[in-house]
Design a protein around this nucleic acid. Structure first.
Lengths: 262, 262
DNA sequence: CAGGATTATAACTCAGACAATTAAAAGGGA
DNA sequence: TCCCTTTTAATTGTCTGAGTTATAATCCTG
């Protein structure tokens, strides 16, 4: 019943059979042992393998079972603690904190979330949040954007057109667009939030792409937002962004329903 | 020019002069060495003592200078890396990441931010974000709240009345109110965001309190929001929340000597 | 039964060594 | 000269084993 199953080996198998390229572009540097373990534990906590309130086995046993050093184990725990997911005290051990204290909007945590199939409710909530913040952001961007912002957004838009969301380059262009928009709002906090959500959306997009090859072309929607911002029409920017997100939500829901039918 | 000045001693001075109570309720467990160091480095990075792109002195030297072990130092760095503030690679060292990658909405980072006087722009941005999310949240809460939520919010409101924002208990009641409201939205992501912002607002409230003893009584404003949510009047809830935040913003701006009022 | 001393257990800190990674320099061939 | 490969060296990463400190739980005393 414990975590006896080794699953993926956590550490690179000595120096035999190097898979070379594999997936070179790993966003999360989990090439380090502590990172890999934090990743695994984080996903397990999100999946409910370890539940809030539960105390993990102590350092000595855990590190021994995982066949890694205590240092590496401790550093992994430190990472999770920094994200509000565990809390450790002498004598009491390390326990999973209450769900409400988890930093769900941490980009890495969001990534872990989309590692496995996130709950329908969560995805819905995420889009709801997006529907609250991004139209407002578009409105602010329309009022405050400079020509430099416009230039970057235009470039990103073109890239989205040439590559598509099916490619990594295309998804990056999508992110660039939204990032530039956020910078245009001249609001760091808002930008930070949207950066996180954007990452999550990128994950879900990838998800979508995997299960449903053909989706609507997103570029026209984006261009409408762009045009509104370019002519500083704040209310149009808001409205176009809202509609863009609703489209994406629709697509995502469709692809997730399909997913459930499998 | 380097960080030679020892400042606060980072580690408890052996076992002499224990200040006993001091501030017992420390939210951040920085009683641990790695936590204390992460705190200090985090604040320094936010203050610009270490700038984005700059590489920190290597582990060996740093830990030696600070007179702590490499383990403790490394765990501190792990914490900062988890919050997106630094990034370390073999041979290249540990460098402060680009500001855009910092998890500014991490509750701990926000706390560090308010440790020193945060920039006017940042506070303004935070309120702007609050002005976007919280009214929307109030609206959702009005639609989805249960009697259990109402009960908690009512209790918090009473507590806010008896204690005031001048006391820790009063600020906690304020947090409780907002937390309950967020739970009522039935949206985890939104709740997580507001939890972070709430913490920041609590810090700024404390700030406000320090510089300007007499502020408007916030309870009536809160009660209007509560009433609207109780009778499931979503648009009223939105409006009342918006006005509540504008009031708070006004007070904060006054206490911070911010020049540009709208 | 309350409150203070005791104990056992866990995290915490330390020191020193070795391994793995990789940026940068050195070298070699066209 | 330029590009590609090899070597080097600096830094983080990992490991081991030991001692220290905080504290939850227990025991003891009044």
């Amino acid at each position: 019943m414990t975590t006896s199953t080794p699953r993926t080996p956590l550490r690179r198998q000595s120096k035999s059979m190097s898979p070379a390229g594999a997936q070179s572009f790993g966003l999360n540097f989990q090439g380090r042992l502590h990172g890999a373990l934090a990743h695994r534990l984080g996903v397990d906590i999100l999946k409910g393998v370890y539940q809030p309130g539960q105390v993990l086995p102590n350092e000595i046993d855990s590190s021994a079972n995982l066949d890694i050093s205590r240092s590496a184990y401790r550093e992994a725990i430190r990472i999770l603690a920094a994200k509000g997911m565990v809390e450790s005290r002498p004598k009491a051990g390390t326990r999973v904190t209450d769900r409400k204290r988890w930093n769900l909007l941490d980009p890495e945590v969001l990534g872990w979330m989309f590692e496995t199939e996130p709950s329908d409710d969560f995805v819905k909530g995420l889009f709801e949040l997006r529907l609250i913040t991004e139209p407002a952001a578009a409105e602010l961007a329309a009022l405050r954007r400079t020509d430099a912002h416009l230039k970057i957004m235009g470039k990103a838009l073109d890239d989205m057109d040439t590559y598509t969301l099916a490619t990594e380059a295309g998804r990056k262009a999508d992110l660039d667009f939204h990032d530039a928009l956020m910078n245009a709002t001249n609001n760091e906090a808002l930008a930070s939030l949207s950066h996180s959500i954007g990452a999550a959306v990128a994950w879900s997009t990838r998800f979508k792409q995997r299960h449903q090859a053909l989706t609507r072309d997103p570029v026209p929607d984006h261009r409408r937002v762009f045009d509104a911002i370019a002519r500083q029409d704040s209310s149009a920017a808001r409205w176009c962004m809202e509609s863009l997100i609703r489209m994406a939500l629709e697509d995502t829901q469709k692809s997730m329903n399909i997913q459930y039918l499998d």
